[in-house]
């Protein structure tokens, strides 16, 4: 088997582990960390495909994924802090309403 295929299978595994984290974790901050794992899996797939094709376009897309990840962390953690400040909890099953 080609080693690039092995790296892509590794990236699928990382993505699905992150997805499992989004499903099963209770804490909002750890849910955000799991979405970061999913984004990392996508980056790995981009870079592995780049190695197979001999181009750099996938790395540029990985770049933009990184930018969006930084923006997502800033906004997501702001949301977590404001949810915590308004309601005083941060377990995902307690947040069942959008309004106060």
């Amino acid at each position: 088997m080609d080693i690039i295929k092995a790296y892509i299978i590794l990236s699928i595994a990382l993505f699905l582990i992150g997805f499992l984290g989004v499903i099963v974790r209770k804490n909002l901050i750890t849910i955000l960390v799991s979405t970061e794992l999913m984004l990392n899996g996508i980056n790995l797939a981009f870079v592995a495909a780049d190695k197979a094709l001999g181009r750099v376009d996938g790395q540029i897309f990985a770049f933009f994924v990184l930018t969006v990840a930084a923006a997502e962390v800033a906004v997501g953690l702001g949301l977590v802090i404001s949810i915590f400040r308004l309601k005083g909890f941060e377990a995902s099953h307690e947040i069942s309403q959008l309004r106060d």
Binding site: K26, N27, I29, A69, L77, I81, F84, G88, F89, E90
Partner: peptide, 24 residues
């Protein structure tokens, strides 16, 4: 990003975080 996460965890009271540490 990791430093950002750590800073946010330090702003939230610790016993509230420990209540919701686990998984479903």
């Amino acid at each position: 990003i990791v430093v950002f996460y750590v800073l946010v965890i330090t702003t939230i009271p610790w016993e509230k975080i420990k209540r919701f540490g686990g998984i479903y």
